[in-house]
Structure formats: C-alpha cells, structure tokens
C-alpha cells in the first residue's frame, strides 16, 4: 500500500508491543461491552424512574383517557392511540410513495426516461451526454437520501407554515361535504393528525425507499429474465415476480420505518396539536407519547416526572417490539440470501 515509506525488516513484536496489543484488545472488549451496558442502563433507568408511578397507577394509566393534574387523573390512552394512528397513516402514505420510488429507481426508469428524451435529440451516444442517464439516476438517489438528512424540527417548522395552510381549505371542504364519515368528522383548525401524518410520511420515505431498493436489486436476474422470456411485460414482471420475491425485504423496511415513526418526536410535537382527544377524524388535533414527553418534561415536578417516565417506558416497549420484529425479518432475509 504505502510504497513511499522506508522498508522495514520483519521481526517479531517486542514485549512492549505485546503489552500494547493486550491493552488494545481489552479496551476493544471494554468499549464493546460499554455499548451493551449503555442499552441496559438506559432501559433500567427509565424503568427505575417510572416504577413509583407504575406501582401507584398500574394499568389504569395505560387505559385512562384523562390527563388532568388538578384532579390527579392521568391516562395516556389518547396518546397511545395518537401515536399508533399517526404512525400508521404516515407509514401508509410513506410506503406507497417509498416503494414506488424504489421500483422507479431499481428498474432504471429514470435512466431509461432520460435516455428516451436524449434519443429524441439524437444525443444519447455523444461524449458529453452519454453518461447523463446514470448521473440523473444517482442524483435522484442522493436527493432521496437528503430527505432523511433534514432535521425533524425543520420539517415541523415547514409543516406549520407550509403544509397546514396548503391542505386546510381542501380538508375543510371535504369535512363539509362528508362530515358523516368518522374520518372527516371534524374541521382542520390548524394542527392535526393529517398534517402530522403527511410530514411523517416524508420522513420515513427514505428508509423505506433505500431498504426496498436493496431488496428489489437483490432479486436474482435470472428470475426476472425468465419472466420476460415467458412473454410478460415489464409491469407484469414487476407486479407478478419482482415484488413478491422482494416482499420480505419491503415488509422489513416498512416495519423499521414504523418503528422510526412511532418514536418521532419533534415534527409531531409541532404538528399534531397536543390535545388529549381520542378521535378517528383525520383532521382532529391529537397527541402522541413522544410529543407528550417533549412538551411536559421541562416543567414537570417529581410526581409528573415519574408518570412521564412510565409513559416513556410504554413508548420504549412499543418501539422495541416493532424494531426487533423489523430487524428479525430483515436478518432472516439476509440469511436466506446467503444460502442461495
């Protein structure tokens, strides 16, 4: 590798080097163990601080619907509902868009489209333009990754000042026309489930796209070619062969994105409305566990801290279950691919 350096003759390590090696190995083990200890410590710490509230309230806290410090009544059912509802909606929108973009990129539609446009001008093989299709494709992939880079608090700000004003007239129009349907039973007065879900969808889209893309690209070419050979069109191949083959990977992607959406805090705290309501309506303000924590922790007293820790524990359990399921699905997939 480094031919520039002066040649050194080979020799066995000195005693000092052995000692340094031992120390190095031990510190590697130590730092590895530290990560495990850290996770255990985090879980235990949240558990320890939530324990008094758990003992005092028990399951009533999880199924209660009122959060009223004056009446000493606390329940986080609306928050759990809001967390699940907004995440599911976000995932629904995000996975439709995300998988579509993944297909679009994995099947080379972008490059093919650019090539087609270039060929209209007869430029497709000239020196200056011949790499243009791949470059555009890479560019689109980078753009999708950049969606994930924007901080969630900026998405929240954008949601407040751009998304909500943009969708409000349409939502209220739908509400007036279809107020009989529970999904549209309230007007969108400002923050609400739908704007939160839209922003969530944008935030989870890059995860879904990148993992689904990997899954689609990993489909063995011979399967695809066999399908083409049997006379299937491109879309019949995609829908009938590629998507079913890549389905476990896409499912894992959606589960992981779901875990991310459940734990997402800032965009929701800014957009969901922080109102303790339990409603099916897409336009109603609601609350999520993460947003509850974000909004109440700063000025909480001892008793409230314990309650919030209990809520944090509930969130921790929900996200852990979803995340572990997601990684298990993906891991199984990797093992299967290894065997092939």
């Amino acid at each position: 590798m480094s031919t520039v350096e002066e040649p050194v003759s080979a020799r066995p390590p000195t005693a000092g080097e052995y000692a340094a090696n031992g120390a190095f190995r031990w510190s590697c083990y130590g730092f590895g163990a530290l990560v495990v200890v850290l996770l255990a410590y985090i879980v235990l710490e949240i558990f320890r601080l939530g324990w008094p509230a758990m003992q005092e309230r028990g399951l009533a806290f999880v199924v209660g619907t009122v959060w009223d410090p004056n009446r000493n009544e606390f329940g986080i059912l609306p928050e759990i509902w809001g967390t699940l509802y907004s995440s599911l909606l976000g995932i629904l929108i995000g996975s439709v868009l995300g998988v579509a973009v993944a297909i679009f990129l994995a099947e080379g539609f972008v490059a093919a489209g650019v090539f087609w446009v270039l060929s209209r001008f007869g430029l497709q093989y000239t020196r200056l333009w011949s790499h243009f299709p791949e470059q555009v494709e890479t560019f689109v992939k980078t753009l999708i990754q950049l969606l994930a880079a924007i901080p969630s608090v900026v998405y929240g700000l954008w949601g407040i000042f751009v998304v909500i004003p943009a969708i409000r007239p349409m939502c209220n129009w739908i509400h007036e026309g279809l107020s009989g349907i529970p999904f549209f039973s309230t007007a969108l007065s400002g923050p609400g489930i739908l704007p939160a879900a839209i922003v969530l969808a944008i935030m989870v889209l890059p995860i879904i796209t990148s993992i689904s893309y990997e899954a689609l690209v990993a489909v063995p070419p011979k399967i695809r070619e066999a399908s083409f050979g049997l006379g299937a069109t491109r879309w019949e191949t995609i829908l009938g062969v590629l998507l079913p083959t890549a389905a476990p990977g896409i499912f894992g992607a959606i589960l992981l994105a779901f875990g991310r959406a459940l734990g997402e805090t800032m965009a929701l705290a800014m957009l969901v409305g922080n109102s303790n309501t339990l409603s099916l309506s897409l336009f109603s303000p609601a609350n999520t566990i993460a947003a509850l924590l974000a909004n109440n922790f700063g000025e909480a007293g001892d008793r409230e801290v314990s309650l919030l820790m209990y809520a944090a524990l509930v969130l921790l359990i929900i996200t852990l279950v979803v995340n572990i399921l997601g990684s298990l699905v993906l891991q199984k997939l990797v093992v299967k691919e290894g065997k092939r």
């Binding site: 083990y29 590895g32 163990a33 990560v35 495990v36 850290l38 996770l39 410590y41 985090i42 710490e45 949240i46 320890r48 601080l49 992981l256 875990g259 991310r260 459940l262 734990g263 997402e264 805090t265 993460a290 924590l293 974000a294 922790f297 801290v305 919030l308 820790m309 944090a312 969130l315 921790l316 996200t319 852990l320 995340n323 572990i324 997601g326 990684s327």
Partner: peptide
C-alpha cells in the same frame, strides 16, 4: 458471544426514539 450482544444493542440503539435518549439523560 459478546459481539452478538453488541450488535443487537447497536441495532436497537439505531432505532431508538431520540426523545428517550433525552429522557434517559434527564434521569441519569
């Protein structure tokens, strides 16, 4: 065997809700 645990913990921590990191630091 430690590596299995480390990998698992790292995977769990990547999907960890950031607000819970704050909750932990508040407590600890």
């Amino acid at each position: 065997r430690l590596a299995t645990f480390v990998r698992f913990s790292a995977k769990v921590l990547t999907g960890f809700p950031s607000v819970l990191a704050g909750v932990f630091a508040y407590g600890a």
